[in-house]
Design a protein around this nucleic acid. Structure first.
Lengths: 341, 341
DNA sequence: CTGTTAGCGCGTTCAA
DNA sequence: TTGAACGCGCTAACAG
């Protein structure tokens, strides 16, 4: 019998010996197996407490073939949207008894591919994957042999669940919101040239649809490219717009970080929001409620996305064989000061 | 021999059989054991590739008593400072070949205690712990039998490493910066009554020291309580200040989130920053560079903190027996528009 | 309701 | 330089 204080030294056998039962009984107790005599349970529990026994989770994982860990791969936690998403995912996972291992891909294509085949996948029972660079052409890379839930754009052709939002409709609603405030020269910042299926492309599509629906001509000069959706990029886009001399009376930031950077750049140029330029973002990060002026945005239902993703993943891990699903989270327009609503 | 494509089915035995060697040799190859004949190594590597072998990390963990996972316990990722810290910790860990399991304590005292004794500690080789509620009285709870690095305030009396910053000096510098701009009625928001050793208490101490050093009388009405250091709290503090009728010409937000909320509340009341009220925050989150006006702050050397914490933890995990260390990260005053510097 | 036993896949002796 | 055998701590069969 080992009664050392060293870590991981106390095993089920020690507990069993002290309680005068078999290891199986100890196992039953710690796993809340239903049919145990109260006296036995208590005896075992006392032995556990006395010895300070903690189950060796590696051994359990080896035996069960499951770790109780799910992976979450996202671009980076410094981006507020992903930090808030991770927060929600961790909460949802905790409520369901699993923990979360976060991997940052840095919005790097190779890194996104690596994460799918990394050794670490052996450590997780499944993966919630939020790709930024991968697209429909990479469907093959996503054909993995473990449970996978893809967040964001839909990538066709494989055995995985999706949790997405309707980017086109949401972007259309955002643009319509600006139009409803009487704006007609609406710039959009953060576009990705050449992309056809990513968030950027879909949101630009929604933007164009809204213009068309209102008979507003599309001016290509109002569509500003911007690679990484960081605040700095938003500021650069505004610099570009202003320097180019294009007239504009509103800006649709393809995400909030871009919009925050844009707000900053406008302010630096003494361009008043919303008087001179109205603005709306996308994601409804917490910041949006605290900027000056507060930032109108699209709330993508982050909490719902996180919970659905965790639920879908756990169902697959549990062996669910249902057809692969696509969950489309609801969005909401959040009018705030920046759009003058 | 199993050549199924099912997950985790290929073992070292399968690889050994295909390569015509023993498992020991395969193990040597995958662990980069130095003395292997090139031909053997190549043979084994080919078998690994052919079979798509991935090592079972649970088995390795069981055998070695180490998982290659470190825990990171922090209040919540929705707080930008902690999101950025987590980002840095994950990067530092990745560079050193380990992964990070994040647990959110929600700044709840019981949750902070639980995290220290949770079963999940069996899953991690050590823990980087950033407590908010625990203080010197809880030193006993921190006496754990696994490697531990404590971030933030120093908690005396146990076997663990600290990575802290000089809160008093940094707060003094922040306050001095406001004084240097000619401000004399400096409010501080986010104070915690009754606390003696936490960040709040130490920073208020630095604030008081700066006033004293400049012969400015201390007005208790300028010290505003605020529990959670969220944006909403900052806004409430300003509401309280304004409603109380106290005169003030500057605000020191004990962290940036408070300062952001305060900026928002001032703006809503048409109080101009920095003309009417100068402001400085603490943490230098990315937001601080993008608000309107940009927010002066104290940069706590987040990157340095993260790297030191990971290094210290890994040294302990590796069995380092050096005396427990206290690393004090450097801070920098970041003057921006909000303080009118 | 509880005990016995046989692996899960790996690293690590000890030999050869 | 490589091979054979054992056991890390646990759970799942199967008894009883």
């Amino acid at each position: 019998m080992s009664i050392s204080g060293a870590r991981g030294t106390v095993t089920m056998h020690d507990v069993a010996a002290r309680a005068g039962v078999s290891v199986k009984t100890v196992s039953n107790v710690v796993n809340d197996y239903p049919h145990i005599r109260p006296a036995t349970r208590e005896k075992v529990q006392r032995a556990i407490d006395d010895l300070g026994y903690k189950m060796n989770l590696s051994a359990r994982s080896l035996r069960q073939g499951r770790t109780g860990i799910i992976g979450l791969a996202l671009p980076e936690l410094s981006l507020p949207y992903f930090a808030e998403l991770a927060d929600s995912v961790i909460r949802a996972a905790e409520a369901r008894g699993v923990v979360v291992l976060i991997e940052q891909t840095g919005a790097d294509r190779q890194h996104e591919l690596d994460v799918l085949t990394s050794d670490r996948r052996q450590l997780t029972d499944g993966l919630i994957f939020s790709p930024l660079e991968l697209g429909p052409d990479d469907a093959d890379a996503l054909k993995v042999d473990y449970p996978l839930v893809v967040l964001g754009e839909r990538i066709f052709g494989g055995d995985w669940d999706h949790v997405t939002m309707n980017n086109v409709d949401a972007a259309r609603a955002a643009t319509q919101h600006l139009i409803d405030q009487g704006r007609r020269r609406i710039a959009v910042i953060g576009a990705h040239a050449g992309e056809t299926m990513g968030s950027a492309a879909l949101r630009v599509l929604g933007y164009q649809a809204a213009l068309a629906a209102n008979g507003i001509p599309l001016d290509p000069d109002l569509i500003v490219e911007g690679g990484l959706w960081h605040r700095a990029t938003g500021a650069e886009c505004v610099a570009h717009l202003v320097d180019s001399g294009v007239e504009f009376d509103a800006i649709f930031g393809l995400n909030d970080a871009l919009a925050l950077g844009a707000l900053h750049a406008l302010h630096a140029r003494d361009i008043t929001v919303p008087k001179d330029v109205a603005m709306i973002g996308f994601d409804d990060i917490e910041d949006a409620s605290y900027t000056s002026p507060t930032l109108s945005s699209i709330s993508p239902g982050r909490e719902e996305i996180a919970q659905e993703a965790v639920d879908l993943l756990l169902a697959r891990i549990a062996g669910g064989e249902d057809p692969y699903r696509r969950v489309i989270a609801d969005f909401t327009v959040m009018p705030r000061e920046s759009s003058g609503a």
